[in-house]
């Protein structure tokens, strides 16, 4: 049996694309090659390792080749899959691209092929998670900037960055990903950028943030809008899974003030006027 050759690369789209470039150039048949993330890799026996040095030129070449030969749709899928947290993501991309360079644009409609399906799956789950954070991310207003934190499984931050900078062009905002130690930074009227951040920094920033007036108002709205007697915990969990709720203000445990008493008081004051 031939030994397996494993390319170990940096866990970023650029790192992955560089590894694909190197693996491709090696001319070794696909069965003999695997690409894996350098971080947390457990070494195996009977395996040859190649350490990939991330090279922007190579990465760009791969990206362009995909765009030109397989198309923009395929590129998007590959890019999304590259942000996935699944350990087979790099191999899945590599095998999909082998197929793609053979069949061209047609490959994206080959729903019957295992390799195409796997790539779709990876890409879909990244996009789904990105979408969930577009829905469920919550900003706090510190008076200086809007700031949010998130705990995604996949590296969805770049996808989120686009969305919020289009939405809040006039705001200074920061989004911090505590699982990947990354942040999106946006300054009013400028282009946003992505940067690595220190975990301690995230905790420090959020240690100082306190829930304010609008957080409270929102929680009240959230409680009021539900129709009593029609509670449906299962459906709610289905649509908004627990792991997303960690930083959603409306799901934080705060003592709920006595609504009846308050409104009662209001009526008293009102009728006295």
């Amino acid at each position: 049996m031939e030994d397996l050759i494993i390319y170990l690369c940096e866990d970023t789209p650029d790192g992955i694309f560089t590894a694909i470039y190197d693996a491709w150039k090696s001319g070794i048949p696909e069965e003999g090659i695997s690409i894996q993330a350098e971080r947390n890799h457990a070494m195996q026996m009977f395996t040859e390792y190649v350490y990939v040095q991330t090279d922007l030129d190579k990465a760009v070449k791969v990206a362009q080749a995909i765009e030109n030969k397989i198309g923009g749709e395929a590129y998007d899928m590959v890019y999304h899959a590259a942000l996935s947290c699944e350990t087979d993501r790099m191999d899945a991309i590599y095998r999909f691209l082998k197929l793609g360079f053979r069949y061209g644009r047609r490959v994206t409609s080959m729903h019957g092929d295992e390799r195409v399906c796997r790539l779709f799956e990876l890409s879909r789950s990244v996009r789904n998670e990105a979408h969930a954070f577009r829905e469920f991310l919550r900003f706090h207003d510190t008076g200086k900037a809007l700031i949010a934190r998130m705990n995604p499984k996949n590296q969805v931050l770049p996808l989120i960055g686009w969305h919020f900078s289009d939405r809040f062009p006039d705001e200074d905002f920061v989004i911090l990903d505590e699982n990947h130690d990354m942040g999106v930074f946006h300054e009013k009227g400028r282009r946003w950028y992505l940067s690595f951040v220190d975990r301690g920094f995230i905790e420090e920033v959020f240690g100082q943030i306190q829930s304010g007036r609008y957080e409270h108002l929102w929680s009240r709205f959230f409680q009021t809008i539900a129709i009593a007697g029609r509670e449906n915990d299962k459906c709610q969990k289905n649509m908004c899974p627990l792991r997303y709720r960690k930083y959603m203000v409306e799901f934080q445990k705060t003592p709920v003030s006595d609504l009846v008493g308050e409104i009662g008081g209001a009526i008293d004051r009102g009728s006295g006027a």
Partner: peptide, 27 residues
């Protein structure tokens, strides 16, 4: 609708839910 400088917000044709109330309905 795309965002624009000097304004707050944009709109996505597919719509976006932001929360789900206790009765399971989208907010």
């Amino acid at each position: 609708r795309k965002g624009k400088l000097g304004a707050l917000g944009n709109a996505a044709a597919c719509g976006i839910c932001h929360s789900f109330s206790a009765d399971g309905r989208c907010i």
